Computed example of a mutant assay.
Amino acid sequence: MNRLKGKNVIITGASGGIGAEIAQQCAEKGANLVLLARSKDKLDTLKRELENRYSIQVKVYQLDVANKVRVEQVFKDIFARLGHVDVLVNNAGFGIFREAHAVQLDEIQAMFDVNVIGLMACTLMVLPHMRKRKSGHIINIASQAGKLATPKSSVYSATKHAVLGFSNSLRMELADFHVYVTTVNPGPIATNFFQIADEQGTYVKNVQKIMLDPKYVAEKIVAAMLTPTREINLPRWMNAGSVIYALFPRAFERIGKRFFDRK
Results as ranks from 00 to 15, higher is better:
A175Y: 08
K220P: 02
A37Q: 05
R254W: 15
R262N: 12
I96Y: 03
M1H: 09
A100V: 14
K147F: 09
L234C: 00
F194I: 11
F260D: 15
C122L: 14
L234H: 06
I255K: 06
N115Q: 10
I255W: 10
V243I: 15
R38W: 12
D176S: 12
L119P: 03
A121L: 12
K5Y: 11
L148I: 15
G241D: 14
V181C: 02
Q195R: 15
T202I: 12
E49H: 00
K132H: 12
K257N: 13
Q200M: 13
R230K: 14
A246H: 13
D86R: 08
K147Y: 08
T183I: 01
A240Y: 09
N67Q: 10
V163E: 02
G16C: 13
L63P: 06
V155R: 03
A162Y: 08
K76F: 01
N206W: 00
N8F: 13
C26V: 14
K59C: 00
L212W: 04
L88W: 06
D41V: 00
D41Y: 02
I232G: 04
S153R: 10
A158V: 12
E231D: 15
G93C: 11
V217K: 04
Y203W: 09
F79H: 04
D106C: 05
I232F: 06
H161R: 04
E99S: 10
W237Y: 14
K76D: 13
A175E: 14
V65P: 05
L226N: 08
P128M: 05
R70T: 06
Q195G: 14
Y203Q: 00
N115S: 12
F260E: 14
Y203I: 00
T182Q: 04
S157I: 01
G256H: 06
A110H: 11
R70H: 12
I189N: 04
Q144I: 15
V163D: 01
I10E: 09
N67A: 02
Y216W: 01
V69T: 09
